[in-house]
């Protein structure tokens, strides 16, 4: 059996719907149509009345999910593209994220954001918005980069008592496959060493895990042993695992597909610099997408985001410092 990243998302949702009567799915086209990416295919049929089509109203979609969470349900919201979460931003950051702190009433809901670029997606179907959400207190942010993680972390996200921003990567939907679904998962909030090494640490997440692994492979041919840390969860950030890795390697390159100003890679560099400067043999580095909207044409798109080649080049520079 072979399971794709997208199929794992669908199976995780089917499992929580089957096991937890509090769960329902709400979003555009998620019902009989099965979702724009088919992440909810057949679920409306299997779970009548619990997979609900919404109008094109992200503010109201998230707002209603918050209300349902207050009433004890566990909504999963599918936002069709991460980019479309912006009209729902107010509800996410001002309503969902503040509720527990203000009132002591938890707000357990999962907001699935199909994130990241695919060739031809253009400026409004390609964004990686995890840094915006991680910035706001009261939200957990997950960015699984493997089939196993997207399955186990989605199940875990539904079980948590907080609003979870669940950043899926569209580029992985169809092409990333695993032999089977995991039976066990890493503990919540823990990063994973995706590849061990001793010369440099690449810290990354989501689809960039695979670019970083390919870069590490490329550099292995040149004699470098590169460690790749897959963060998995961006908030809370597993600083301990990152720091331990940097302690082993002495060099850091943080890799992110999101924009460069602020954000996850900046946070990694800041934390390592603040707490582990003495561990570093070279200045900590980071690589991100270019600081423009995401371009449409494949030639431009491929040059806009980090790739195995550009990551390897950045790593090489840092290794030679």
């Amino acid at each position: 059996m072979s399971v794709t990243y997208l199929e794992a998302i669908r199976l995780a949702q089917a499992r929580v719907l089957a096991e937890d009567p509090r769960v329902f799915i709400y979003g555009q086209d998620v019902g009989a149509f099965g979702g724009a990416f088919k992440a909810t295919k057949n679920l409306a049929e299997q779970f009548p009345g619990r997979v609900i089509d919404a109008p094109i109203s992200e503010d109201a979609i998230v707002g209603a999910a918050i209300g349902a969470a207050i009433e004890g349900l566990r909504p999963i919201v599918e936002i069709q593209f991460a980019d479309f979460s912006m009209p729902g931003f107010n509800q996410i950051v001002n309503q969902a994220a503040t509720l527990y702190w203000r009132t002591g009433v938890p707000c357990p809901l999962v907001i699935r954001l199909p994130s990241g670029g695919t060739s031809g997606g253009g400026p409004f179907h390609s964004q990686c918005l995890e840094a915006l959400y991680a910035h706001m207190p009261g939200l957990l942010v997950m960015a699984p980069g493997t089939v196993e993680d997207v399955y186990s972390m989605l199940i875990e996200a539904v079980a948590l008592d907080d609003p979870v921003i669940f950043c899926e990567h569209k580029l992985l939907y169809y092409h990333l496959k695993a032999d089977r679904l995991p039976e066990a998962a890493l503990p919540a909030g823990k990063a994973r060493i995706a590849r061990p090494g001793r010369d440099m640490t690449l810290v990354t997440y989501s689809a960039m895990v695979h670019e970083a692994l390919a870069a590490a492979e490329e550099l292995a041919a040149e004699g470098y042993q590169i460690e790749v840390v897959d963060l998995r969860v961006l908030k809370p950030l597993d600083t301990d695992t990152v720091m331990a890795s940097v302690a082993r390697t002495g060099r850091l390159l943080a890799v992110g597909e999101a924009w460069p100003w602020g954000g996850v890679t900046a946070e990694i560099v800041a934390r390592v610099a603040a707490e582990g400067l003495h561990l570093l043999d070279a200045p900590p580095q980071r690589i991100n997408a270019k600081d423009t909207p995401i371009p449409y044409h494949p030639n431009l798109w491929a040059a806009h985001r980090p790739t195995a080649r550009s990551i390897a080049a950045a790593a090489r520079r840092a290794l030679q410092t």
């Binding site: 503010d59 707002g63 004890g72 349900l73």
Partner: peptide
């Protein structure tokens, strides 16, 4: 933004 929250409670 409170309208949709009330909606969600009623829907729940």
């Amino acid at each position: 933004a409170m309208i949709a929250v009330v909606n969600g409670m009623l829907l729940a």
